[in-house]
């Protein structure tokens, strides 16, 4: 079998070892978050740099996306509160373009978040998608955790239950943002620095 493959694929491809795997985690965890400045629903522009010294969470948000609706059944609000109480800065990012699903005005952003009982520090109105693309946000709800030094500790899906349907399914899920945060606080290595984001595509 080995012989067949050698002749089929040629020797050149075999010369490359799997060395890339060894360093994968290192590169993923030592990545500095890109700086940005963007309008927010508070009326003020928000830049990432102003939160230096604090943990920052970015949450990609489209309030009409069914996955976001599912997490705003209580899960997201609870996480926001837990993180906020611990001094984490929570930034909800709306990268939906004007006219597309989930796009909100300043007033709508505040009103919808209030109705949902969410408590982000700020809602970032990223209508041109700049912040979303800087972080490679693919879906809502995609989550990013940034360290007090500005390193990206986590970027990916909110948890390990993309296909969860019920509250019971969700209660069993492992939340990757919370896990990374707890590990970082405890000075432990981040075991899951990047997991596949799931949800609705970001409506750039």
């Amino acid at each position: 079998m080995k012989k067949t493959l050698l002749s089929m694929l040629g020797l050149a491809t075999l010369g490359i070892a799997l060395s890339a795997w060894a360093t994968q985690d290192d590169t993923a965890t030592s990545k500095m978050a890109p700086e940005f400045s963007v309008a927010s629903s508070s009326g003020k522009d928000i830049s990432l740099g102003q939160f230096k010294g604090k943990y920052v969470v970015l949450e990609w948000w489209n309030h009409q996306c069914p996955f976001v609706v599912r997490h705003y059944g209580g899960n997201m609000q609870a996480l926001q509160k837990q993180m906020k109480d611990d001094g984490v800065v929570w930034l909800t990012v709306c990268s939906s373009a004007p006219g597309k699903q989930g796009h909100v005005s300043v007033e709508q952003a505040n009103e919808i978040m209030k109705e949902n009982g969410g408590s982000p520090a700020f809602i970032l109105l990223d209508a041109d998608g700049k912040v979303g693309k800087l972080f490679g946000a693919k879906t809502t709800p995609q989550m990013v955790l940034i360290s007090p030094k500005g390193e990206v500790l986590y970027n990916g899906g909110i948890d390990n239950a993309p296909n969860a349907r019920t509250k019971e399914d969700m209660a069993q899920a492992e939340n990757f943002v919370l896990k990374a945060y707890k590990q970082a606080k405890a000075g432990q290595p981040i075991t899951n620095p990047a997991e596949r984001p799931y949800g609705c595509g970001v409506k750039y």
């Binding site: 089929m8 694929l9 491809t13 070892a17 799997l18």
Partner: peptide, 15 residues
Amino acid sequence: TAALAESDAYAMRVG
């Protein structure tokens, strides 16, 4: 068909 691992890809050969 055959498949081979490369550094950051897989090569799929189809005849």
